[in-house]
């Protein structure tokens, strides 16, 4: 059996270099392009009493200059210090597996949020089209069950989706937990706490 030490090599970590390069580049872009266009006040200004005082750009420029210096130090320290690194380590870097995870995670969460946003309005539009109700979703925002539709539907899709993905199977007990949590959330946020608006109702 080969020990992991045999695979180690003394090389600069490319992710440490990348970190320094990205922060250095972002700081320079902020200093020379972003701030001049997005901060109306100057670095220093002369007030009505004729005294020099800091403008709105004063502190952001100080901070960003500090970031430039620190980024250069980061790059120099990586260049001068040889880090003992295991080639197969996943610590200290983003792997393709991490990016795949983010993509999947966002897919499930955004699907849940889309259901949360649209379920209420679409249901009321459908019921209105069928002649069952007369009002729009906006007019029914304070009326049960319409005001809970999006939250319950979207919340279920999001939480049940994530649990099923994380566990690799559909477990009735997990689904039951989601239903209980949603019920308790409705009880607390929708009924007990009167001045709280559940998503998506504040957006309509």
């Amino acid at each position: 059996m080969t020990s992991s030490t045999d695979h180690r090599r003394w090389t600069p970590n490319p992710w440490d270099i990348g970190f320094g390069v990205v922060t250095l580049a972002a700081s320079l872009v902020a200093l020379f392009f972003w701030f001049p266009h997005d901060i109306k006040g100057g670095f220093v200004e002369i007030n009505l009493a004729g005294r020099l005082e800091p403008g709105d750009a004063f502190f952001p420029v100080l901070l960003t200059t500090t970031m430039v210096i620190l980024s250069v130090v980061q790059l120099l320290s990586v260049a001068l210090t040889r880090t003992q690194q295991e080639p197969d380590t996943t610590i200290g870097k983003l792997t393709p597996a991490n990016l795949r995870f983010l993509l999947l995670f966002y897919s499930v969460v955004l699907a849940g949020l889309a259901v949360m946003y649209w379920l209420g309005p679409l249901t009321t539009a459908l019921l209105r089209g069928l002649g069952i109700i007369d009002q729009s979703y906006r007019e029914l925002l304070d009326t049960a069950p319409y005001k809970y539709l999006g939250y319950v539907g979207g919340g279920f899709v999001m939480t049940a989706g994530l649990i099923t993905w994380a566990e690799g199977k559909v477990r009735p007990r997990a689904i039951l937990t989601v239903v209980i949590v949603l019920f308790l959330s409705l009880l607390i946020f929708g009924i007990l706490l009167k001045n709280i608006q559940l998503p998506p109702n504040a957006d309509f």
């Binding site: 969460v109 949020l113 946003y117 939250y151 919340g155 999001m158 939480t159 049940a160 994530l162 649990i163 994380a166 566990e167 997990a174 937990t177 989601v178 949590v181 959330s185 946020f189 709280i196 608006q197 559940l198 998503p199 998506p200 504040a202 957006d203």
Partner: peptide
């Protein structure tokens, strides 16, 4: 954890939505 964390996510969304009033 696989059950608790998605529930925490939903409660976080509910909490910040309630405080800041929007998506």
């Amino acid at each position: 954890k696989s059950v608790m964390l998605p529930v925490v996510l939903l409660i976080t969304f509910t909490a910040v939505y309630a405080q800041d009033g929007g998506f």
